[in-house]
Design a binder for these strands. Structure first.
Lengths: 174, 174
DNA sequence: AATTATTTGTTGACGCATCAATTATCTCTG
DNA sequence: CAGAGATAATTGATGCGTCAACAAATAATT
């Protein structure tokens, strides 16, 4: 890349970036607070409980949960350990693949997600959906996937290998 | 609040929430990775360096930085300690208010932000702005502030007190 | 069948954010 | 001026996410 061709942000772009950055920080932060206050847990734990309770299957392998949430395996592993200690989930070894496990909600886990869901959904509806009109919701629905696509071009996994090579990715250059 | 009036999300809303949730996680995560790889720092540190370098003043008090970024004081305090240890900033006690301090970038701090800025701005432009058309950018610009407004109604600080009391905040009910 | 590569999941060290508690200074009120 | 309250900033404990290294089992290759 040539010397200093950085396309800096103009004032308008900078203002928008500022807004987005604030949203990126404030929303998850407020969501964690809501869950902490109302249900003594955080977003990560809620997400795992939700995935396990929503799916058609009664048990899932950690890799499935990780894929569903697009999470790091390690993060999930740590979280599952804590959740098992709290009695939210149980693990049994997978018969067909002895590396894997089957993760299942316990009764306490079901109770927890059932009790946490109403206030959490209310939070999302009130703070997020109710703040936006139909057009804005639609715009988010089309805009954000594009950004996510752009991000996938350069992920931590070695998934960089199967992305379009012609288009100047910045996975290791500087 | 009455028994079970939770307005659950329908399929369309759930899909949108899923997208937003993924964006909320993946974007900051990718941004941290970019900064780590290219500049050996993370978003928080970059933000502080940016605020200090952008402002008209050559030095700022921690409270000003915290307000600018809408951060917790404690978070900033910890971060400033680490940044001071790395030689990025210096502190001098404020003459007019002996509780406060003046935070200033060191030469090393200036060098760091100057070197980190191009690739970071490029990341934001390529992954975020370039992925969106003008209409989508405008939509974000109007939509997100509304969400942020809704969030401000219920913050950790005792700022709950000066928000409209008629409108059923959920700061402590359940 | 034997070797290699890939996939599944765990672990430990480390850095960071959060919360509650604390110190020091300032401001307001009487 | 004295005392109550507010504000600036720090501290320590705790929990979480990340990274790199690892162990175990399966899949692919020869």
């Amino acid at each position: 890349m040539a010397a200093d061709e950085t396309r800096w942000l103009d004032d308008k772009e900078q203002a928008l970036w500022r807004t987005i950055r604030e949203f990126l920080w404030q929303f998850p932060s407020a969501m964690d607070r809501q869950l902490s206050v109302d249900s003594s847990m955080q977003t990560g734990e809620y997400s795992v409980l939700a995935v396990l309770s929503e799916g058609p299957a009664t048990s899932l392998r950690p890799a499935d949960i990780a894929d569903n949430l697009r999470w790091d395996r390690s993060r999930l592993s740590h979280l599952l350990r804590r959740m098992e200690a709290k009695g939210m989930i149980t693990r049994c070894s997978d018969a067909t693949d002895r590396r894997g496990q089957q993760i299942e909600l316990t009764e306490a886990g079901w109770k927890t997600i059932r009790e946490a869901a109403p206030s959490h959904v209310t939070f999302i509806r009130e703070k997020l959906f109710d703040s936006l009109d139909e057009q804005e919701r639609a715009a988010l629905g089309t805009a954000l996937p594009k950004v996510l696509d752009a991000l996938e071009a350069c992920e931590p996994d070695p998934s960089c290998k199967d992305s379009a090579p012609g288009d100047a990715q910045r996975c290791d250059e500087d």
